[in-house]
Simulated scan of single mutants.
Amino acid sequence: MTIRRRVPGDLDACVEALALVHAADRYPVNWPDDPAGWLCPGGLTRAWVAVEAGTVVGHVGVAGEVEVTRLFVVPAARGRGVAGRLLAAVRAAVPGPLELEVSAGDRAAIALYERSGWRRVGSGRVGWLDAAGEPALVHRYAWGHVVGGTA
């Protein structure tokens, strides 16, 4: 498995991987009208992919130099440290503090972050709806010193 910077030619494969994740986990909760655009949110400064046997099996991005975003791993590649390696690539490239948000219901992701040394720094409701149709509860995590406050 290789972790490398995402290039424009990876977007179609990233969308295919995201579709597998969405089918398994409803991440993102609502399938975007433009999934390639969803993978390139405003403020995205860089992104990485995990590639195995020529197939994208994971993805992560950084927005605004501190916000980890769009982290996912296809179901078939889970349990092998892919998400941890993607986060390590981010930490190696961004020497300062990092933050991320995770849905309160995503227990596997929360366990990964806490095992990896991320600290919960706040929780709050956000503008998008969870699977139950309620404003989603998210937890905010920090790596390094705390940058922000609650979500």
Rank of each mutant, 00 (worst) to 15 (best):
T55P: 07
E16P: 03
Y113M: 08
G58Y: 04
L20P: 02
L87W: 06
V60P: 04
F72Q: 00
L86V: 09
L11F: 01
R119K: 09
A108E: 10
T2K: 13
D130L: 14
G58W: 04
H22T: 00
G124T: 06
R85I: 12
R119C: 01
V56Y: 04
V57K: 01
L98Y: 15
P35R: 01
G58R: 02
W31P: 10
S103Y: 13
A23W: 02
T150Y: 07
V146G: 03
T45C: 12
G96V: 07
G61L: 08
V57H: 09
G117C: 06
L86E: 04
R125Q: 11
R120I: 01
M1A: 14
A111S: 11
L39D: 05
A77G: 06
F72V: 00
V121W: 11
V82Q: 07
P32C: 06
W48T: 00
R70K: 12
R91E: 08
P97H: 12
I110K: 10
V51W: 08
G43H: 02
E114H: 08
E134N: 10
G43K: 00
L137K: 03
V62R: 11
T69M: 14
V73E: 03
R140T: 09
E67Y: 15
L20Y: 04
W48N: 03
D34C: 07
A92G: 13
G84V: 03
A131S: 09
A92S: 10
A136L: 11
V57N: 06
Y141R: 09
G81L: 03
V94Y: 11
Y113Q: 13
E101Y: 08
A19E: 11
A89I: 06
S116E: 14
V74N: 05
R80F: 14
E67D: 13
R91Q: 10
E114G: 02
I3A: 01
R107I: 15
W118D: 10
T2A: 13
D25V: 02
A23E: 00
E52P: 09
